[in-house]
Design a protein around this nucleic acid. Structure first.
Lengths: 124, 124
DNA sequence: CAGAATCCAAATAGATACTG
DNA sequence: CAGTATCTATTTGGATTCTG
């Protein structure tokens, strides 16, 4: 399995939360699963910029921390459905607070990023 | 300057927030500055595990996003004091919500990490 | 004390091809 | 469809040294 070499300090609640939801796509995944998007292929369709591999890795971490669970139906073709655990549900208000705050800043944030791009000559 | 090559998608408020506070030590820094720890040397003393360089990088990012500001006193020896902007203040309730949730999970989290370490044979 | 410069290590993500 | 394996690229953080 994966072995981290640099110790992290989890004395602070923030650090614990960041460890749990800190991946690049975990917030989307939680958001979507919270909205009822359950199957891996659907999730991938909603977040096409990420590869299956990365989504799977992050889903595994969320599962490891008990935030989500999965039902596996041994059919053909195989079917898997993710869901929020009770513990995961307890996280949703925090997620929503984070999303709300961020949403209020999206516009200004984009401008800031454009200014930054101009300065360094990048034009996506 | 630093040029990112992989585009990020900030359509979601969560992603914006994570971009702003997502660094390894930013949460500590905000927490400490919010508590009134102002000077770089003090901050470094409170977070000795991080190097000055990294703390500076993260402080700069927080400053770039308008979360914190700094007063520079051109004295000898030089003195710098960070402070939360109004915008940064607006973030604190979210930070606190995140910290509270995480704090409630610290114990269980540590156990989980130990179990993980046992499995892979790591004993820090 | 504050912080920039350089070099390097670790962590994380992406591309692609493959299996049941 | 779901998931893994392998390889590569990018991003981020750490160590050290140096300056005013």
């Amino acid at each position: 399995m994966y072995e981290k070499k640099i110790p992290k300090d989890f004395s602070c609640g923030m650090a614990v939360l960041m460890e749990i939801i800190g991946g690049k796509w975990k917030s989307y995944l939680l958001f979507l699963i919270g909205k009822g998007v359950r199957r891996p292929s659907e999730l991938h369709r909603q977040v096409p910029a990420a590869t299956k591999r990365v989504l799977n890795l992050q889903l595994k971490e969320l599962e490891f921390h008990g935030i989500i669970g999965k039902d596996i139906y041994p059919e053909l073709p195989p079917r898997v459905e993710y869901f929020l655990t009770d513990f995961g549900q307890s996280l949703m208000p925090v997620i929503n607070a984070m999303d709300n705050w961020g949403s209020g800043y999206v516009g200004e944030f984009r401008q800031l990023m454009e200014r930054k791009s101009e300065l360094s000559g990048i034009h996506n």
